[in-house]
Design a protein around this nucleic acid. Sequence first.
RNA 1: GGCCCGUUCGUCUAGGGGUUAGGACAGCAGAUUUUCAUUCUGUAAACACGAGUUCGAUUCUCGUACGGGCUACCA
Length: 513
Amino acid sequence: MTNERKVRVRFAPSPTGPLHMGGVRTALYNYLFAKKHGGDFILRIEDTDTDRFVPGAENYIIDALKWCGIEPNEGIGFGDGPHAPYRQSERKEAGVYAQYAKQLIDSGNAYYAFDTKEELDEQRTKFEAMKASFSYNAITRQNLKNSLTLSEDEVKRRIDAGDHYVVRAKIPRNEEVRLNDLIRGWVVVHTSQLDDKVLFKSDGMPTYHLANIVDDYTMKITHVIRGEEWLPSAPLHVLLYRFLGWEEVMPQFSHLPLLLRPDGNGKLSKRDGDRLGFPVFPLSGEMPDLKTGIPEKFTGYRESGYFPEAFINMLLLLGWHGSGNQELYTLDEMIEAFSIDRVSKSGAKFDAEKTKWFNQQYLRKRTDAELAELLSANLKLENTPFLVEVCRLMKEKVFFVNEIYEHGKFFFEEPTVYDEGVIKKRWNADSKKFIEAVKVAFEKLDLWTAIDLETTFKATAEATGTNPGNVMQLFRVCVSGAGGGPVLFEMVELLGKETTVRRLTAALEKLPA
RNA sequence: GGCCCGUUCGUCUAGGGGUUAGGACAGCAGAUUUUCAUUCUGUAAACACGAGUUCGAUUCUCGUACGGGCUACCA
């Protein structure tokens, strides 16, 4: 029985461009499913379309999975396993597919077709004129050039003469194909809705449909977890398993809902990221565009400052949810909690805001020292105890590691501009006098701790008859230039006496009375 | 157009024949930090519509609407 076999799943992307976050989610679900059931997760590269091959795409896929911590047990880039090669172009070279195409033809489930692209286009326009759409199927194939209509001799002659031909599946005329999708339940399609899909192209390459079935069979795949865009062709795949006599070991199908764009309609695409200002890809990079061949840059989550844990946690919850209210999962917790039947059926609109929130959650889990180390590596800053302290004060205020520096620049540089809104609202002869008084009081201070600073600050306020609430933010601006920031007196303590006094002097000089 | 899949707060979703329909993000309002970008509390916000089954339907069935996918010698 199939359920006694060791669970084996695969992620099988095509190297046609950078791996999109939806693809990463598919890989993640496959990975989680495999680990949950003590099975294997395989990476297979489906590069049967030589025209759409994009150099660098394969490495990108590998790097992206590594960054996410989604590591296959077998496959390209992760040490080949017992079923090598894992690249379909190489499997074709090894003759993996031809024998099965032959088997299908011999058993009467496939046939040679000699129609040229032009002839088929002609058919399409002809049908269109009659407000119908052309489909190469049980009806139309009787009037087209194939081994079903041509004589045996003619077929042989054409093949021997080197005529271009394809192999097409011979879809039965009047049957119901059913498949039990683990996410959607029974899906029933009538064969009259299917067409005689090309299994082998005239360039000698198998198409996705054949390669996919053959590889899943030979690689002993037990569960196919892939995007919803494959659901319409799943019945064809079921038929192929049957034709090949592999029904017993046919994998169980699960078709994942798509990732949708945050606004408007349609599935999430590269353009949406550019337009709406969030990454659609895990890693930044540059790759030639599929159509134009012109190199195009794209940004990734990694370079945008996201932790891989936050990225995959966000992806996990875009289409899957546990039975409780838990939202933050470690990888181990994901594996433990994951189950395919809790994947939702409907497409999920991507939410960039929530993604930021996830990153914030993971940032807060890091220690001050860890953050300092990341920050110093990212921005080539010297990792000092001072930097660790800055991280301690800033971590509650930011979403991204680099923001610790960006929003806390005043820890490292003298302010050059002062928050205009605050100055406009608070700066006047009285408040200026107060800042002067604070400066004098602070200069006299021996103990420079947050508590002493606060006490002194308040005492000064009282002495000058000032409401502390009215001048605190002003004081902050004088010291840092910014209207917001970490807890005020801890910030001043960290800045130190010399710096603080110097900055107060500078502010007093620069700001108009 | 045809076929397939789907539809719970703005978004991601929990739930499920009888519930005050729960959580999170984003809103909004208060508190607190005598400042603020943290935190806390509160609040508003949803079962697409119409039939049917039923004592009762958001939950089951059917239809409609809407959304999505597919409809290549692409995957």
